[in-house]
Amino acid sequence: MKLSYLADLGKFVLWQKEVFRKPENWGMYYKELIRQMYDIGIGSLPIVLLIAIFLGAVTVVQFYYQMEGTLIPPYYIGYIVRDMMIIELAPMVTCLVLAGNVGSTMAAEIGGMRQKEHIDAMEIMGLNTSSYLVMPKLIAAAYVVPILVCVAAVVGITGGYLASVPSGLFTQAEYVQGLRAFFIPYNVVMMLVKSVTFALILVSVSCFQGYFVKGGSIELGAASTRAVVFGDIMILLADYFIAVVLTT
């Protein structure tokens, strides 16, 4: 069991050589790239927005509850929400959601193509399927996911505002003062590094699970689940390592 994971890891690493081969036809890759950008971006926007707005709202309410009656000034809450969203919540939660949403779809799509011999048919035509089916998805995700994460951060902060100011927890001036306090631009860099890394992880893990699927519909379902589980685990691990590397 353990050994088979190692074997998969080796297969995955060797496979990257095929994935990054020069495209046969830039136009077709470009078309696929645009389709993927649309699918990833527009397709997962609603769920990302929904989750982000509640993340921000809950963060504010919970921190207010903890800090009420202490000497910490209320504007600190704006500062806390901003940094939590930017540094951690927006990139990680968005990408965990995308791993479940986009990742499982990609695994199922590519796995279905493998099982229905579509991949074989393309190979016979002389196409390098590893690169045609994976590279546009990787590039699309590397562009679109950071945008989604930025949107999530902004929406999350807005969610925090909506949950606090109208209900009178503190004033708009206090919240905005918090948002503008102690701002470190480097944190945004950290957010972008995380988004791109997580995007590449979730796409390549999912495509790998789909591309090498065997058997029938049960195996396809299992591959799709594995794509999400492994994707999530890898994202969490990467989150930790990036945190360690970029903060020391």
Binding site: D120, A121, E123, I124, G126
Partner: peptide, 8 residues
């Protein structure tokens, strides 16, 4: 493969 066609 560019010279090959296949019916599955």
């Amino acid at each position: 493969r560019k010279e090959v066609g296949m019916l599955f």
